[in-house]
Design a protein around this nucleic acid. Structure first.
Lengths: 211, 211
DNA sequence: TAGATTGTTAATCGATTAACAATC
DNA sequence: TAGATTGTTAATCGATTAACAATC
């Protein structure tokens, strides 16, 4: 395989789903799976599964299928789950707290190492064992600690400014929960989570259903 | 236009984004916009914008472009933002609280009318003015009130069971925050929000960036 | 070995982009 | 009217699906 081959975003977005289904199979104690079996579980074609996986390597064996455990490990590696990325949360409101207490971070290769807010009532408290610090501590914290990702859960009007600030501090990845398409110059990776967009799609589909 | 023409999911997912950009233009006091102007703001092609919009009708005018306000209103109507859907949240943990306090629901045509949990410490308290009720009240509540959407923010292991329960009670739309692909028989609309999938895509992209 | 299932090439399908006549 | 920009058809591109030789 060509390490630098451009993988389409459609394929990348399916990887976490493969990872989840393989983890489930593993939990069920199933050792091997064919693309056909997996396709029936996932509701996609076997052809697509084989095409997707072969972007990264030949993980299967003719006549046998795929070994669940080793394929699960391989996809985990492809996703970088072993990188031990460190993340900070900026904005300790309800969403910040929800993410700080999210049970799936560690298993996904991410660790929350700090939370920042401006509210004096929150500063110097903890949630899920993680310190909530003053925004004034942000610069020093990022300079003195390894921080790979900033999770932005702050009010809309502060998001762009803070995003620019953390990127200036050298952070290369943003997970943005404000309803705006953050775009920043340079080699910064941004994932925008637009809950209200998802809700509107639900509304559209429900409206169609009822009509 | 043909009201029953099948609109592709790719188009539907772009509608909330159009709605957001048009709302922003409106706030900036801009009255008209051409597909070319909008395409530059949004980072997509003008051709795609015109194709997308013409799935629903001819909202523009040759030589002029689109009226921002009326296009915004039209897309809002297409998305069903005027339907006044009523939603309940099941699971008053951190994520449930975050969504109960989410400022964008009302403007998106949704109203939270109740929250349910099993925790005695939470039952009969309020958040954002909405009552948190015992799970035992769920049946009666749904039977006696208009409830269009159930928002599922409960632990993984309870999600499928509760999803089946609320669908049996007649709810036709689920917004699911558990990391599983809920699929239910019948004409039920389900939007799965997979935060950990989004995070893993971020991890993949960050890993590529660093290599 | 015979059967099963992959990896991979070719065909198909659908979505995006380009082009331009219609028209405001 | 002349210029601008839409709505829409045609061309292109990319993603999905089908087919099958390779091989375990």
């Amino acid at each position: 395989m060509d390490e630098n081959k451009k993988i389409s975003i459609a394929v990348i977005k399916r990887l976490p789903r493969y990872f989840r289904y393989l983890s489930d199979l593993l939990k069920e104690g199933i050792e091997r799976v064919s693309s056909k079996d997996l396709s029936e579980r996932m509701g996609i074609t076997a052809s697509q599964i084989r095409q997707d996986l072969n972007n990264f390597g030949g993980f299967g064996q003719q006549g046998y299928g795929y070994n669940v455990k080793s394929l699960n490990v391989e996809i985990g590696k492809i996703l970088g789950l072993n990188h031990g990325f460190k993340a900070i949360i900026i904005g300790a409101g309800n969403m910040g707290h929800a993410l700080a207490n999210y049970p799936n971070f560690e298993g996904r290769g991410f660790e929350i190492v700090g939370i920042f807010d401006v509210d004096p009532d929150l500063i110097d408290t903890k949630t899920n064992g993680i310190d909530i610090l003053s925004m004034e501590m942000l610069d020093g914290f990022v300079k003195n600690n390894k921080v790979d990702v900033a999770i932005l859960t702050l009010p809309y009007q502060f998001t762009r400014e803070i995003a620019e600030k953390v990127v200036a501090l050298g952070i290369k990845a943003l997970w943005n929960f404000s309803p705006m398409d953050l775009k920043l110059p340079g080699d910064v990776v941004i994932e925008n989570v637009h809950l209200s967009d998802s809700l509107m799609v639900l509304g559209f589909r429900l409206g169609k259903l009822k009509s």
